[in-house]
Design a protein around this nucleic acid. Structure first.
Lengths: 151, 151
DNA sequence: CTGTTGACTTAGACAGTGTCTAAGGTAGGG
DNA sequence: CCCTACCTTAGACACTGTCTAAGTCAACAG
């Protein structure tokens, strides 16, 4: 689905080599990289690309809605190229891996007006947390170490 | 509900002046402060308290489940003393304010096993995003500026 | 094809958030 | 009242992200 570049052209973006490699990295494996990971992969294709350019480009892609920003822990944000399908995230508490999940039922379930406290609610994020298969295998009985909660 | 100190005593915590003021700040208004805000308020009560101690204490409170850590944007984490009632969060995209909401229906709705990709799911976080009443009043028509999405 | 121009990129300084270390202080049990 | 293990401190450090000034170049006009 490398029509990301086509969409960018349609938006009259100046198509520089730097923007092309960033788009290419995002179009690749459908994972959720951090900005630094994207920079590293982009630099493998175009060694002189700078951090600032990667941050700028990601910020613009997020602003126009082609990429989603995901902040799961307090660490680095991750970038999700799957912006055109509503979905939720499954996050590993141990390694931070993120997987997209496409629920059959939309749990958006309107928040009752009485519970909105005057807020204008525009969207809802649902994040499932736990351990990915690899980490669950590694920590085995340590599953009880999962004493931290968040919802 | 200042039995937080009682619970800490029961856990055989050394009750130092520093830990007491941190607990006191958390027990106060039921808001969601950042670590720096907590440090500032604690320092108003005990001027020589250090940042490291506030971070240490918050980390320990989170580890034992007396306080929840909430990372909504990529900025500073916020600390939620309301750890003993399952709840969700309403977050303002403009000012970052967080409100607890206690939904009548639990949208946890089990994630279908087929959608778990082998993850061991231990909990789910639901975050409603939008504008708080104050920010909605301020930006008025700019509501359409909310082009970013996250779920 | 070539020139022009404004948008883009760069390196590096800077800022916010959080972690770590070594040294000194103190709560709480004896 | 003393000890000692645990706690606190100041400050250095690391990570993530933002900003600036100067140089570069994609795209368009001619």
């Amino acid at each position: 689905m490398s029509d990301l570049l086509a969409r960018l052209r349609a938006r009259r973006w100046r198509l520089t080599a730097q923007r092309r490699v960033v788009a290419q990295v995002l179009d690749g494996d459908h994972v959720h990289f951090t900005a630094e990971e994207i920079h590293a992969r982009a630099a493998a294709l175009l060694p002189e690309i700078s951090r600032a350019t990667v941050y700028n480009t990601l910020g613009e892609l997020v602003a126009i809605g082609e990429v989603l920003e995901v902040s799961t822990d307090g660490r680095a944000k991750r970038y999700d190229p799957n912006a055109h399908h509503a979905h939720q995230h499954l996050v590993c508490d141990s390694c931070g891996t993120i997987r997209d999940v496409h629920p059959s039922v939309d749990p958006l379930v309107g928040l009752p007006t009485a519970e909105r406290y005057g807020f204008t609610v525009s969207r809802v994020a649902v994040t499932y947390r736990g351990l990915c298969p690899d980490c669950a295998a590694g920590s085995a009985g340590a599953a009880s170490a999962l004493t931290d909660a968040e919802a």
